[in-house]
Design a protein around this nucleic acid. Structure first.
Lengths: 213, 213
DNA sequence: GCGTGAACTCACCAGTTTGTCCGTTAACCC
DNA sequence: GGGTTAACGGACAAACTGGTGAGTTCACGC
């Protein structure tokens, strides 16, 4: 009953507090979406208080946007520098597809945030030019491998690099995003360890067959 | 001030009211998701009152599930019977892919509801065995075309029909679902009329190359 | 015309959820 | 050690939102 004096001792750590809030917010928004997430819930899972969320991020939208950008930045930072420049085109393309496939699989939180953005007509994505820039990098890498293959003569000339990127993304994204509905309808076999191995092999095979001259 | 007697005249029309509510609910849930949709908003767009929603559907979850099933049923009913049995395998496969592509494009509301379901770990989809059955039909149709092609000798024997179905779905679904985020990041070119024509051509080409012996 | 159950209206509530007021503590400068 | 500013906490307010209680009208059989 009498802890009036004990509660109010704390350290100042602006960056730490902000980071803590962002990590929790990211997880909550990824799980529940913008409308579904609850500020109180986020605050409760934080080391700090709800008041601090408003202190640093203004309002719920501000927190959401910050969490979205943070999610992109964090995942982007975790991208290992894939060493494909010394490879031949087919080999490089295979490595790249496998990398994107694994990358998506191991970052479901980002995938879920993007799903939410799409439900929301990408309203917040549009506000962030920061995020737009991030994505061009992976696009350019693919383009390099493609033209490498075209110069080697193993890939067709008439391939649209944007479509190619779209097609790889479509499959790698769908694999994570629509797993719940697909496995409900057609069983979980595609999503076991063995199933996923088969799947990525198939995607690689399919991509190469599409590209070959 | 004195309209005590004027307001209370109405006709009984249970089916009409239910249908009206469902149509509005479908649109609202598709647009805003389960958490984002507001019962008051749905009620306002209805010819009837909020109380009727609870009268017929119990609670928000009940209404959501009813809207989800109704969305599937309505779209399924609109599927034209695609006449592919007299075609050769390659031709039939192309027709089928184009059909699925167009079908997804012209039913964005259903796509959006499925997106929401996936955000929600397909919780409500799992509850509805009615929906599971619906989807097996399109799966079987694809399987028929595939084995037709294998008997003709034009398609490879080692194709997994579930993966093939998954791959077509992935692209056709992603095309609608992730259009907002993709076009924000990489421009709207893929989604113009011309772009979509190119895209479906590419998907067909890619699918056939994957299948061919 | 009258009884009955289904269909329907209106007003309201209780719990939730975002956001803020106000005061307190830490850190830093002089 | 006094003053200033940034960092922080707790409690409260205002609006929103899902859900309900209680009574009214309709349709139909008798």
């Amino acid at each position: 009953m009498k802890d009036e004096k004990l509660r109010k001792s704390w350290k100042q750590d602006a960056e730490g507090v902000k980071h803590d809030i962002l990590m929790v917010a990211m997880a909550e928004f990824a799980e529940n979406g913008l409308a579904g997430a609850r500020i109180d819930e986020i605050a409760a899972k934080t080391k700090t208080s709800k008041r601090m969320i408003y202190y640093y991020f203004g309002d719920k939208d501000g927190l959401y946007l910050a969490a979205l950008e943070s999610a992109y930045a964090r995942v982007r930072a975790g991208e290992s520098d894939l060493d494909i420049d010394h490879m031949k085109a087919e080999e490089a393309m295979e490595a790249l597809v496998r990398f994107i496939f694994d990358h998506h699989r191991s970052n479901p939180d980002l995938i879920r945030m993007v799903m939410n953005e799409n439900v929301n007509h990408a309203n917040y994505l549009k506000k962030s030019e920061f995020i737009r820039d991030l994505n061009l990098t992976s696009m350019r890498r693919l383009q390099r491998v493609l033209s490498m293959g075209q110069q080697e003569g193993v890939f067709r000339q008439e391939i649209d690099p944007v479509f190619l990127h779209w097609q790889i993304q479509a499959q790698c994204f769908y694999n994570v995003a629509n797993r719940p509905s697909f496995s409900t309808k057609f069983g979980p076999e595609l999503f076991t360890d063995e199933g996923q191995k088969q799947m990525v092999d198939n995607i690689v095979e399919s991509t190469l067959r599409f590209l070959r001259a």
